[in-house]
Amino acid sequence: MNIFRLAGDMTHLLSILVLLLKIYATKSCSGVSRKTQELYAIVFLARYLDLFTDFISVYNTFMKIVFIASSLAIVWCIRVHPMVKRSYDKDLDTFRHYLLVAASFLLALFLHEKFTFLEIFWAFSIYLEAVAILPQLVLLQRSGNVDNLTGQYVFFLGAYRGLYILNWIYRYLTEPRFTRWIACVSGVVQTALYADFFYYYFISWKNNSKLKLPA
């Protein structure tokens, strides 16, 4: 494990904690896309099917369980918690996320490392994660104003992706066996989706003003 990978995992965890904190403290999920959160829950459930078949490390198993549990907790809050549920604006969150699920699964059927149940679901989760942020970005763009915690949530998620790319470069240079084209290419696509958001996030930070996305 290198420093970029660890920092990437930590910012990923931090992003989820920021979101949970926001929902818990304000009892509101305004500005949060339920669809993106459901896609992430599907991503983790599909990718970590290997929890039952492979053991890599205590750290790995622990983090997998944390990611599955926290993503399900967020979806539960938005769908079931009476106060949080009321703040959900489904008219803003209209992205047709099932299309992303269908397209990712189709792609996984054709592009995978091995034609097995686990490998297809693993590839599916990689493709779906790459695009899962789209409903959230569209929602933010629609509502224009982004509250601080939601902005930080997306910022930490983007930072996690950027750090994973550094991690791959590091591993590519230091580990002779390191080849994982599916994850790396999808990861670069995913990070590119954040570029626009990062640009406006940086501008607002530089001007010390509230984050606003152009319509």
Binding site: R5, D50, D54, I56, S57, W122, N167, T179, R180
Partner: peptide
């Protein structure tokens, strides 16, 4: 094997 080696990330 190679496949497992490729799955050590989260």
């Amino acid at each position: 094997d190679e496949l497992n080696y490729n799955k050590d990330e989260l």
